[in-house]
Amino acid sequence: SADYSSLTVVQLKDLLTKRNLSVGGLKNELVQRLIKDDEESKGE
């Protein structure tokens, strides 16, 4: 998976916004949300 932890919070929020995901929470939560979304989209 992508190394989201190396991105800035601003970059993470931009990715979340593009996916229509919540941008609330700490950086670690944003990273986990993106990883979870990646895993769910692979399952389709």
Rank of each mutant, 00 (worst) to 15 (best):
K36T: 09
N28P: 10
S1Y: 14
K36C: 08
R19V: 01
T17N: 10
L7V: 01
T17C: 11
S6H: 11
S1W: 14
S5N: 13
A2Q: 12
L7F: 07
D38F: 05
Y4W: 03
L21D: 01
N28F: 12
L21I: 04
L12T: 00
Q11V: 06
S1A: 13
D14P: 02
L16E: 00
E44R: 14
L21W: 00
G43M: 13
D37I: 03
L7C: 08
I35K: 08
E39M: 13
L7A: 03
E39A: 10
S6E: 09
N20A: 07
K36Q: 11
E29L: 05
G25N: 02
D38E: 05
R33W: 03
L16Y: 01
G25L: 02
A2P: 14
V23Q: 07
T8H: 04
V23T: 15
L21T: 01
V10F: 09
E40S: 11
S22K: 09
E40M: 13
Q11H: 05
L12I: 05
E39I: 11
S6Y: 08
I35S: 05
E40K: 13
G43F: 11
R33M: 04
K18S: 09
D38C: 05
Q32T: 08
L12A: 00
N20H: 10
E40H: 11
V9S: 05
S5C: 15
L34A: 02
T8W: 02
L16C: 12
L12G: 00
V9A: 05
N20F: 07
G25H: 02
L30C: 04
K13L: 08
L12E: 00
G43I: 13
R33L: 04
L30P: 01
K42I: 09
K36S: 08
Q11I: 06
E40G: 09
D38H: 04
R19S: 01
L34P: 00
K42F: 09
G24Q: 15
D14E: 14
V9F: 07
S1E: 11
Q32Y: 07
D37Q: 06
E44H: 14
K42L: 11
K13C: 09
L16K: 00
K13S: 05
L34D: 01
S1V: 13
N20G: 15
R19W: 03
R33F: 04
V9N: 05
E40D: 12
E44M: 14
L21K: 04
D3P: 11
E39W: 11
Y4I: 02
I35E: 07
K27D: 03
R33K: 04
E39T: 08
G25R: 02
Q32W: 08
L26S: 15
D38K: 03
K36M: 10
